[in-house]
Design a protein around this nucleic acid. Structure first.
Ligand SMILES: [Zn+2]
Ligand SMILES: [Zn+2]
Ligand SMILES: [Zn+2]
Ligand SMILES: [Zn+2]
Lengths: 151, 151
DNA sequence: TCCGGATTGAGACTCAGTCTCAAAAGAGGC
DNA sequence: GCCTCTTTTGAGACTGAGTCTCAATCCGGA
């Protein structure tokens, strides 16, 4: 969903930290919105070859500070980035342990409520105040599970 | 729990991939067992200053291949390592978003069963076969929540 | 238009993590 | 013990993701 309200929201958030919504930043935001899954710097270089690396990194940092972008750690050593949940919605990740692909999944409300309740008590019993959670499902995607056509 | 059966188990696992259980590797395993939380390379350098970095990294790689050690990604850019769940037990992490501290928490069986059931169906609906999951609870630890004594 | 602060791009730089290779340690046979 | 072969180890070179610097450019407001 690459709608117009998205850009309004992003601009507003950037303003709150005295930053402008420039073309480069807009390009990153649109790329993330279009992708719909956590994107690595390599992905960004492919999807937006004209965007210099140093700028891409900086835009990601700025957008993170504005609460627009979130860093996601997958199973490999590369950082991935996606729009923050306040911009899209709360969700979890399916991570393929073979090819590293990450896709988003939205849980049911019932599951989330049960989970949050449980996690709060678990955290409290260790002196933590729980704000949020991160749930990744590790497995193998259909492509990696398919019989190899040739090898 | 740094008991003796641990070392027997580790040795057996290493044997299965034709590797010896040497002093350096034993040192890493004992360090991880003693720590009881996911440990960074920096932590290892502090806790075992005599162990060269290149060796520490290699031991971790070898122990991972033997299924003794698992890499954990926290909230920062550093890798952390802990004993694999097959060696200890399945658990989740409480991550302090302020100081980066990570501690282990063991869930109840009932929660795990409900979760696994739900995750399997969620994964299946996206063509994934789910093997495992990773659940981090983000929040603030008691230290970081305590009123600052001076500032 | 002019000014001052924010933004950008190119490239140098940092440093976690990997690789190389020669020295050291084990295992096994004798 | 001694010799040989294989595995492991340590020092340091190397790689590359991510950061920092700085001069050039952009942009908003007076
Ligand atoms: Zn896959
Ligand atoms: Zn959730
Ligand atoms: Zn803390
Ligand atoms: Zn679990």
């Amino acid at each position: 969903m690459v709608n117009d309200s998205l850009h309004g929201l992003v601009e507003q958030r950037l303003r709150q930290v005295c930053q402008r919504y420039t073309n480069g930043r807009r390009e990153v935001v649109e790329l993330l919105a279009r992708a719909g899954y956590p994107v690595s710097i390599g992905d960004i270089a492919e999807l937006a070859p004209r965007l210099p690396r140093s700028s891409a990194y900086r835009h990601l940092v700025n957008l993170q500070q504005a609460g627009v972008v979130r860093r996601v750690s997958g199973n490999d050593e590369f950082s991935r980035f996606e729009l923050a949940e306040e911009i899209t919605e709360h969700h979890h990740h399916l991570v393929c342990t073979h090819c590293g692909k990450v896709i988003d999944v939205t849980p049911t409300k019932a599951f989330e409520e049960a989970m949050n309740k449980y996690l709060a008590s678990l955290a409290a019993s260790h002196g933590f105040a729980s704000d949020d959670h991160r749930l990744d499902i590790l497995g193998s995607c259909s492509t990696c599970r398919a019989p190899q056509p040739q090898l």
